[in-house]
Write a protein that binds this DNA or RNA. Structure first.
Lengths: 241, 241
DNA sequence: GGAAAAATGAGAGCGGCGCTCTTGCTATGG
DNA sequence: CCATAGCAAGAGCGCCGCTCTCATTTTTCC
């Protein structure tokens, strides 16, 4: 009975389906925004679904239509944090595009540090203790890799210029180094790959100690200290001055 | 039947006040032990005073006679964790007393790593995100310093043997390096001090990435990787093979 | 166009949490 | 021997995550 025309594209289709979907997207975004604000203000431990609901003017049970649990909400914030940090790092890399490898390496490291100091709670969320049981599914890995990949890219470029000067690997480490190189750093000489992974972790060791207060009354003038450490880190992956 | 005044040598009590005080000490210890068990099992986030009270057979409000708040309890566990880790590190250092500086350096680093892998939740408590507002008062600093001091000691010894080969410091870092040296590494040449502080943070960067799963699907064969990284770390503070 | 189905939001409620306050009791110490 | 200080228990406050039910919209499909 309904005309042939009516079946698919009924009059209000875009408005109809779109309206509902868009409302949902907007509310989801509002919830995330409120959650992000709470996270930045008070930290992950104090982030509560009920408070978020209050802030967006909902009753708490309604939020569960949008996020199945508090931890799922947190997971989304984790991914956002990784992306925010990754973007800061990539932007620093691109801004220093024409500089020397050492300058670009330093720029990326300092961007990561600045981001962490500006967003300590987000930093804690991604590089501190895993919050619940934990919640790092496959979804987060891509976002999590961005800083590391930015650094790998710089080392790769440096290698094209001057050859990297690196110590030979111990035999016990060679197979693993080759696997790692094949998996995520195909452009790099095999000797550089474990050094890269170590430098990646060590960079966040330096940043984490500063953000979490471990350097309190130990290292006070932290910027020159960090710069120096990062320069040595560059040397350890074969970037020469 | 409050017996005569002789009450307190009947049951083998050593001191008068000792009876009540000892009971208090025992209960305090029992509470801490239960808390430690919960921490190891479930992590700091799930540690609840009520659950601890249940485990020691008390009502929750009674626990507040012994610890003024959950965070105070956690703070004590933090100190214990620092001490446990510090003791593991010092023991490794002392066991390798007659070995080369590099071997001793490696022993301490590997002891720290092993402790962290064996006690991930305790590790998260002390090197992960600060838990509440946070709670690192003056009480914790001494315990927190033990691993760092063990490493400083090794570098100091190495310096007495062969001279350390270290790059000169940038001028901007020199004053801070001299202050740091005066404050907590008086036996070390000034060039080694920032390198030491950096190596300290970087060591826990490596360990933290492993404990918190950041190396998942990135570094798989982690022992040789760690050994290699730690050897390079030793080089960075001037310990030669 | 109208009925069936799906989505949404409110409300009440469950069990658990940290923490406080009051109430009896008992060991302690003048 | 009695006043007191320390202690355990209980009730209770306000918060939390999460579930379930119920009424009210849309949306979908015939």
């Amino acid at each position: 009975m309904c005309g042939a025309l009516g079946t698919w594209h009924t009059a209000g289709m875009t408005t109809a389906q779109g309206a509902r979907a868009r409302a949902r997207a907007e509310i989801t975004a509002a919830i995330k925004e409120a959650a992000r604000r709470q996270l930045a203000d008070e930290g992950a431990a104090k982030l509560s679904l009920r408070a978020v609901a209050r802030e967006v003017g909902m009753v708490s049970s309604a939020v569960y239509r949008y996020f199945p649990s508090r931890d799922e909400l947190l997971t989304e914030l984790i991914i956002d944090a990784y992306d925010s940090l990754g973007e800061a790092a990539e932007q620093a890399r691109d801004t220093a595009e024409d500089a020397t490898p050492l300058a670009r390496w330093t720029a990326v490291c300092e961007a990561a540090r600045s981001w962490a100091l500006a967003h300590p709670h987000e930093y804690a969320l991604i590089y501190g203790s895993p919050v619940p049981g934990y919640s790092a599914p496959q979804t987060t890995v891509r976002a999590a890799a961005r800083v590391g990949l930015a650094l790998i890219g710089i080392v790769g470029d440096a290698r094209e210029g001057t050859g990297l000067a690196l110590p030979t690997l111990p035999a016990e480490l060679r197979p693993e180094a080759e696997r790692m190189a094949a998996d995520f750093a195909p452009g790099l000489p095999v000797e550089a790959v474990p050094a890269m992974a170590a430098a990646w972790a060590q960079l966040f060791g330096l940043i984490g100690f500063e953000v979490f207060g471990q350097f309190h009354r130990v290292v006070e003038d932290r910027e020159p200290f960090f710069r120096h450490a990062v320069r040595e880190l560059a040397r350890s992956v074969g970037i020469e001055e």
